[in-house]
Design a protein around this nucleic acid. Structure first.
Length: 124
DNA sequence: ACCTTGACGGTTC
DNA sequence: GGAACCGCCAAGG
């Protein structure tokens, strides 16, 4: 039909990846928050699944900053001490995000998207 | 078509 | 704080 067929095969993933790309450097977002912004309210688990399938070399020529997504309690969702836990922690700290123990202070670092800006960026 | 799997979230105790 | 429980539902087998 058209060249967007690839995106239509897994439309949910595409929307999720696109939304994650909007999280600014030095900020974090929750799985549920991304789901809501992507137009998939209540599907936080799907966000986790989609992030697990992020293309290693980016998507639409841009990287998907998967590490800026954490759970609603401000915690990294990988098992403490696992390879990916450490990797995510490191990448966040590289962006000056402060992690106390295993938690990020959401009050200070959670992304608060500007509605107008969002409407401009997302075209569903 | 049925069953299991999730990088989850909220509610409750 | 934290642990147990349950609802959620697309995707993949």
């Amino acid at each position: 039909m058209n060249k967007n067929v690839n995106e239509l095969i897994k439309p949910q993933y595409a929307q999720i990846w696109q939304t994650v790309q909007l999280i600014p450097i030095g900020k974090v977002a929750c799985y549920g928050q991304i789901a809501d912004l992507a137009g998939l309210p209540g599907r936080a688990r799907l966000v986790g699944k989609a992030l697990g399938k992020v293309p290693a070399f980016g998507w639409q020529k841009k990287p998907v900053p998967w590490y800026r997504v954490i759970n609603s309690q401000g915690k990294i969702s990988f098992p403490l001490g696992s390879e990916y836990f450490e990797k995510q922690k490191q990448l966040l700290q590289d962006e000056q995000v402060v992690i106390i123990g295993t938690k990020v202070k959401l009050r200070d670092f959670q992304w608060q998207p500007d509605l107008a800006e969002l409407l401009f960026s997302l075209e569903f």
